[in-house]
Amino acid sequence: MATSPETKKRLVTAALLAPASLWLFVFLVLPFIAIVVFAFGERAPEGGYQPSFTLEQFANLGARAAAFKNTLLLAPVGAFLCLVVAYPVAYYLAVKASPRYRLVLVSLVVVPFWTSLLVRVYAWMYILGARGIPHLLEMIGIENVRLLNTPGAVLLGIVYGYLPLMIMPIYVSLEKLDRRLLEASADLGAKPLSTFFGITLPLSLPGVMTGVALVTILLLGEYLIPQLLGGGKVFFIGNALVDLFLQSRNWPFGSAIAVTLVVVVVFILLIAMRIAWRFAGTRQVDLV
């Protein structure tokens, strides 16, 4: 049977996309459907899942209110702190740094992001733990300082872990900034500060939005930082999920929390995209 070139072209396209489609379906779409179904189910007496159609799990979300409160409070605060530290760095890299060293300096920001978060969090357990800074403080007479297992330690870990992810998109949007605009502003007699607030800052807002949205979203699912630096005292949604799935084996309730988390993530993403589109065309974020 002769196939027309058009059919052949379609077959090739389908063949190219087949493996990835299979993956997306079996390991993304199907699992998501599964947790949605579970979220409307009941907990079997021995743990696990029992089919049912009930809103009980969602009605019960309040039982984990502390985890939601901590996450929804500390994630945006952490993202904001990241932004405060990241903006000057991104500005320096894009505008002030000499081109000779720019590449190296940018690499130095990206590299930590791709090294094990577990190891980087471990480093702070080391520094904040009893034999770290508190030990040094004891030597100069300040006793009983607790740094580890506090909200402060969790925030520090958040800023440390997610700083590179905040710097990169802001750097990208500042780097694309047309320098002639800054010169024009200066030529017209604007002070550096008013050039910054009138031109630089507004034009870098898409990068800022991308960074804030990315960091906030990833923080909503964070587990390691609150677990290791919060010592189980600062509980995030991620910690509640691990507890519900691996310890107390209440899968339907855990699924309801996971579905809620995804809804929150999508909601934040939509808002961020709307704002980003309003300010400028979408920009590619170079994460590598």
């Binding site: 997306l24 993304l28 947790i35």
Partner: peptide, 19 residues
């Protein structure tokens, strides 16, 4: 593909386990 990157790892882990 964007969803695969953006959905938190903890949710991917749970959902894959359940499925």
């Amino acid at each position: 593909f964007a969803a695969a990157i953006v959905v938190p790892g903890v949710v991917i882990g749970i959902a894959t386990l359940v499925a």
